[in-house]
Design a protein around this nucleic acid. Structure first.
Lengths: 226, 226
DNA sequence: TCTTAATGTTACAGAAATATTACAAATTAA
DNA sequence: TTAATTTGTAATATTTCTGTAACATTAAGA
């Protein structure tokens, strides 16, 4: 995985953590601790994506954002905003400043990584891996399509995410709780039995024309992709 | 069960990151944000390993460490210290407090995971290996599968746990009571003769195509894996 | 060899886990 | 807005697992 990511964030510990982990994933990363300097360096660095803190010592994230959008060379630079909890989430969410996504601190690196990839997938598909394949099952993350033996299959959003999850961890058994945590949006409370129903729906969709079952039930443990 | 890890660390973002990722690897994880509370919970949780921040709001990592080493039940608990860069690394390194390893922030999860496994491999070798193997018998804890001579065998949950138990302690004889205590969920009351039935079921499942018997009855003592 | 305690085997009823279905509420599309 | 789709849950059906009791067999000492 190649691609360049720039970080503007004043909390050094966060920068360190994120930068280090992103580098371990193969990104080239550069960063700045404040807005003005960040803007300058960013334009030299020419990243594929920007992680931008909402509250900076000099400029606000919004200001940085606006500045970038004015620059023809960076008009389309994907931006993910980092916000502290309770920091007027709604404002940011409804924002027309052209932020592509935002994430509230504290966040796990996995969360961040997933969002980065999701955003890059849209803006710069070559940078990120797109197709998940297992046997004759294929999931295209860009086009959001699923195929079994080259035949397209229709899935609802939840079944899609569920299958995506299994495909990124084939053969491994996951408990209902693990599945819930990963596949469902955070802080959503659903019965763990609900998983069963979605598994059923997924099974029904991907078990096409007498092809073999691909989802295994492991009694007392959970489910796995074969 | 792959092993339990406790985390004492006050930076919530780090806890989240580490906890989530360790759980995805199959560990059972619990955590606390400060030293005093952490010590209490840890002793209830009985982890196989402790991740301990060097700088905590109330106690220092060293204090926590000393407390643990004083407690006979946790004298040998493996500890990995988390330190910020430049935090008197040498002191920690040369430390006689019985820290098993330390890692400086920021770290990538891969680094941490590798160290955890290295430490566990020394202290508790059964925990880290995903595959338990004895002669031509193999149990995969991640995929929850069992093979005899490469042929997959179907086991019920209890037989699976029973076999897992024997495989972590091959050749050793266990009394029915010992087996009950370890393999059955706590505070469940079952007749000790029930073991015999499960042994029978397990034997039936793993004694495939005339292969030799793998479970030995030791009259008046119990059972063992050969 | 006989006796007896320990273990092996079997069958079965209840328990527990999962599968399936149907439906109403929520969400999205038209 | 209405219509269509998706979602979560509860109720019900089905499958699989568990523990026990009853009976059979074995091992070991007298």
């Amino acid at each position: 995985m190649k691609g360049k990511i720039f970080i503007i964030e004043d909390e050094a510990s966060i920068v360190q953590l994120v930068q280090h982990n992103l580098e371990m994933e193969g990104f080239v990363v550069s960063s700045s601790l404040n807005g003005n300097e960040g803007l300058k360096e960013l334009k030299k660095f020419e990243p594929n994506l920007l992680l931008l803190d909402w509250m900076l010592p000099d400029l606000s994230g919004i200001d940085v954002c606006k500045n970038i959008r004015k620059d023809n060379n960076f008009k389309n630079l994907p931006i993910i905003m980092l916000t502290a909890k309770g920091e007027e989430e709604d404002k940011i969410k409804g924002l027309e400043s052209g932020v592509d996504d935002y994430i509230t601190k504290p966040f796990s690196f996995n969360e961040l990584s997933a969002r980065i990839k999701a955003v890059l997938r849209r803006s710069d598909p070559n940078i990120v891996a797109n197709d998940l394949i297992f046997e004759d099952l294929k999931l295209d993350r860009i086009e959001k399509r699923v195929f079994r033996s080259d035949k397209e299959i229709q899935l609802g959003p939840t079944e899609f995410r569920l299958l995506e999850f299994f495909l990124t961890n084939p053969k491994r058994v996951f408990s209902r709780d693990q599945i819930l945590e990963t596949v469902w949006p955070n802080n959503v409370n659903v019965e763990s039995r609900t998983i069963d129903v979605h598994i059923r729906r997924l099974r029904q969709s991907i078990n096409i024309e007498g092809k073999k079952e691909l989802i295994r039930t492991v009694r007392a443990s959970g489910y796995s992709l074969i």
